[in-house]
Nucleic acid binder design. Structure first.
Length: 793
RNA sequence: GGAAGCAUAGCUCAGCUGGGAUGAGCGCUCGCCUGACUAGCGGGAGGCCAAGGGUUCGAGCCCCUUUGCUUCCACCA
């Protein structure tokens, strides 16, 4: 081993070595039990940041752990590279607008861009030492993914779970597409409350509204049935100011008497409450806002203007005509589109939906069937499902996505679905294989594409090759583990459950591992635009090593958010240095080691047996914790074993025996060598899941010539029979040594100074072991003479 | 407005099903260059475990209340 560890060269070489040797290849469950992992295909919407590294690494550690527990780990990686997020990336990077280019040209720009990003993503994962099998790589835009996604849609359409309807839908006027509830974000903004009088037979009715531009779309006024102020108004007509048409005054229980004036105008559509009232009271619909965010041409005063400009203009008009009683500034929360921050509208249009509302109970029950780690994230899921208001709108009026395998008959407008053998199909480029039932054979292709989640929610089916020739659904379904961060519970988790229940009747996975988020500081998520992500992950790796970054990522409790600062990596580097040096010491002592047969503990000296028992104990404990996905706690256990017991105690005790066989005896030295060999190997195996590079380096440098496996990462964590008494002996012995060290420190002595006499109070049960350890203790403490003072505990 | 999480040493956090806070790392401080490691080793100081109440022989841990922080959801009249 070199004096200093050159991580840069080592990590690069080992990445290649693992790839060449196919160390992490999935073996199709031929000879081992399968452990399958459903990993998020990262959305290709920008660069990866430290938050991704944090979350993905935590899951990757589990993959390595399971592999070293003897599982054949099915661990496919992919990219979610279609849909709106990707389109927005391309529009940003290429400085184009999708709607101004021919569809095919935009699509090819997309393909080009995602290729670049995916290469970068993959390099990062590889550089981090991810033990994925890249033969299983997938993309959601690939033909196979499109085929399975379309098949999923066709199956759902067939069973009636996917349906098309004309209805007001959540709409983003910036992206010019329908969106789903899950894509909403709330944002606080400053608005003006406009107070205006509506003329009625019972006198003026004062109403407060934030959206005066919708006056033309006003369909009625609501008051609470019990509101004493408006008893005389309900049931009468009111005249809309400025536009002078009559609307009814109705009552509804959901009207809040405290908000505004307690009387509220209902327009189509100002907000989700308007939509509720519209549906409950079967109100007429007046189309005011167009899909591009302008006011309908036919609306007087403001036709053709953008919403915000129209609002200001109407306010001016009202003021000018003395119709504005007063204005009040206020803060309120508005629903915006998460991708662009634009305030959303409800726009009547025909869209495809997946029925989720009628099966809420089933989706809630599914949550009970999945083991959540940590458990409380189940709450997020259940509260989301319980509060869902609308079915999942899956059609997007966009370009780069999986097309709907649907045409519509030109005559009767009935949808004609593609046949399975046509898939994947683009209805813009192909025709249905048969004519419509009405006899017509002229078709209009569906131009919308599927919500990107409609495809990524079937990653389990894509990986299983659902319905394909080599379908392994039976083999891997439900998958053992889903890992992800908590920000996509309402989307990826929920939609995956929906699809899995509909297609297989089962939950998609047994366990879900939810990791936390990395914040730059409280309340500030790391984002590319804010440039607060502490440098690119790749730069961090190049400066500090992949092992250091991984060690950091494994340090926190599962599911908890954390803050990142580069300072944290110092702790990692300190550890890596320590491990390297400890190994250097051990291998120096093992230069002439002859490994005979298997480990026969009983012939070893007590101290040697103790540290081997400590390694064993820690292996058992760490496995328990990792089985619960507690990577941070497991690492802590291993750290204590390695740093405290192995380095600070064991090596210090055994050192002289190893250096001076003439004093301690050759057999005693051999005992120490045997122990060093096995305890260090045991420790390397434990750390292999966290810091795969440095551990593999040490394995290759030394162990490979003795062991059968060509890589440390192919070895298994071995468990021996526990010897609790020996563990207790070790603790007792540590206590003695600690006392001596304390004494020397207080007297400002050097640790190697001798002491004339050491008196040990030795419990009867440890007597024999202490006797056999006399030389070790003398060596470690510098005691010239040891007296045992026996007493019964 | 609803829900969840967190509140332990100056800082960042561990503390499993209730049983002595020898808690960890950093920082501070005092010593030691111990034939792997000064990016080290050995000591020390520093905590009425957010506040209050309850259950219990016993509470950092369980229950209730309060406060503060964070996150998620709802909230466009």
């Amino acid at each position: 081993m070199d004096k200093k560890y050159d991580f840069s060269k080592t990590e690069e070489n080992l990445t290649k070595f693992w790839e060449q040797e196919g160390i992490y290849h999935y073996r199709n469950g031929r000879d081992r039990k399968i452990f399958s992992i459903d990993t998020p295909p990262p959305t290709v919407s920008g660069k990866l940041h430290i938050g991704h590294v944090f979350s993905y690494t935590q899951a990757e550690i589990i993959a390595r752990f399971k592999r070293m527990q003897g599982y054949d780990v099915f661990y496919p990686f992919g990219f979610d590279d279609n849909g709106l997020p990707t389109e927005r990336l391309v529009e940003r990077d290429e400085k184009v607008r999708a709607n101004t280019l021919p569809r095919s040209e935009f699509r090819s720009k997309c393909m080009e861009t995602i290729g670049k990003y995916e290469e970068e993503f993959k390099n990062l994962w590889k550089r981090l030492g991810f033990s994925a099998d890249w033969n299983l790589e997938y993309r959601t835009i690939s033909d196979l993914s499109q085929k399975i996604s379309q098949k999923s849609f066709l199956e759902l359409a067939k069973s009636g779970k996917a349906y098309r309807k004309e209805s007001p839908v959540l709409w983003c006027t910036e992206c010019r597409t329908s969106i789903a509830q899950a894509e909403l974000e709330t944002r606080e903004c400053r608005t003006i409350f406009h107070y205006l009088n509506f003329r009625t037979e019972a006198g003026d009715l004062l109403i407060a509204t934030t959206r005066p531009e919708l006056l033309a779309g006003c369909v009625c006024i609501f008051v609470h049935p019990d509101d004493p102020r408006y008893k005389g108004f309900a049931g009468r007509k009111a005249v809309v100011p400025l536009y002078d048409f009559e609307i009814p005054i109705l009552t509804d229980d959901t009207v809040s008497m405290e908000k505004g004036t307690g009387a509220v105008m209902c327009a189509t559509f100002g907000d989700s409450t308007d939509l509720e009232w519209y549906q409950r009271h079967k109100l007429p619909c007046k189309k005011i806002i167009m899909p591009d965010g302008t006011i309908h041409e036919a609306v007087p005063f403001i036709g053709g203007m953008k919403v915000k400009a129209a609002r200001a203009h109407i306010a001016e008009l009202l003021r000018g005509r003395g119709l504005l009683v007063k204005q009040e500034e206020m803060n309120h929360m508005v629903a915006v589109h998460e991708r662009c921050g634009t305030e959303t509208e409800f726009i009547p249009s025909e869209q495809w939906y997946i029925d989720v509302l009628s099966e809420k109970e089933r989706f809630l029950k599914a949550a009970d069937e999945i083991r959540w780690h940590p458990e409380h994230f189940k709450n997020r899921y259940t509260s989301w499902v319980e509060n869902l208001k609308w079915d999942w709108c899956i059609s997007r009026q966009r370009y780069f996505g999986v097309p709907f395998p649907v045409w519509y008959c030109k005559e009767c407008h009935k949808p004609i679905f593609a046949e399975e053998k046509q898939l994947p199909v683009n209805p813009l480029e192909s025709r249905p294989l048969r004519s419509c039932d009405c006899g017509c054979s002229d078709f209009i292709p569906e131009t919308a594409v599927l919500d990107t989640w409609a495809t990524s929610s079937v990653t389990t089916l894509i990986n299983a090759g659902y319905g394909e020739e080599n379908d392994i659904t039976e083999q891997i379904f439900p998958m053992d583990m889903r890992c992800q961060a908590h920000d996509i519970i309402r989307t990826w988790t929920f939609y995956s459950v929906v699809k899995s229940i509909y297609h297989t009747g089962k939950t998609p996975w047994k366990d879900i591992m939810v990791s936390g988020f990395v914040f730059a500081k409280p309340g500030e998520k790391i984002s590319k635009s804010k440039n607060n992500g502490a440098g690119s992950p790749m730069a961090l790796i190049e400066t500090h090593s992949a092992d250091a970054v991984r060690y950091w990522a494994a340090g926190s409790k599962l599911g908890t958010d954390t803050f990142f600062s580069e300072e944290e990596l110092k702790i990692s580097k300190r550890f890596l240095n320590k491990l390297y040096n400890a190994a250097k010491f051990a291998l120096m002592q093992l230069g002439d080691f002859e490994k005979t047969s298997t480990l026969e503990e009983i012939q070893l000296l007590p101290v040697d047996r103790w540290i081997l028992q400590r390694v064993n104990e820690t292996t058992i404990r760490a496995a328990e914790l990792l089985n619960e996905y507690e990577i941070g706690q497991a690492r802590h256990e291993i750290d204590t074993l390695f740093w405290r017991d192995f380095c600070d105690y064991y090596i210090e005790i055994a050192k002289e025996r190893l250096y001076q066989p003439e004093k301690h005896g050759a057999a005693q030295r051999y005992s120490g060598q045997t122990c060093l060999y096995h305890s260090l190997l045991g420790i390397l195996k434990l750390y292999a899941v966290y810091t795969p590079y440095i551990t593999e380096y040490i394995y290759q440098d030394f162990y490979r010539k003795y062991e059968t496996e060509i890589s440390l990462h192919r070895t298994i964590w071995e468990i021996r029979k526990e010897d609790r008494l020996m563990l207790a002996f070790g603790e007792h012995l540590k206590g003695i040594i600690s006392e001596v060290r304390k004494e020397k420190t207080e007297k400002q002595m050097s640790m190697k100074d001798t002491i004339p006499e050491l008196v040990i109070s030795c419990p009867e049960k440890f007597r024999e072991w202490y006797r056999k350890s006399e030389m070790d203790i003398k060596a470690c403490t510098g005691a010239v003479k040891i007296l045992f003072q026996n007493f019964v505990m």
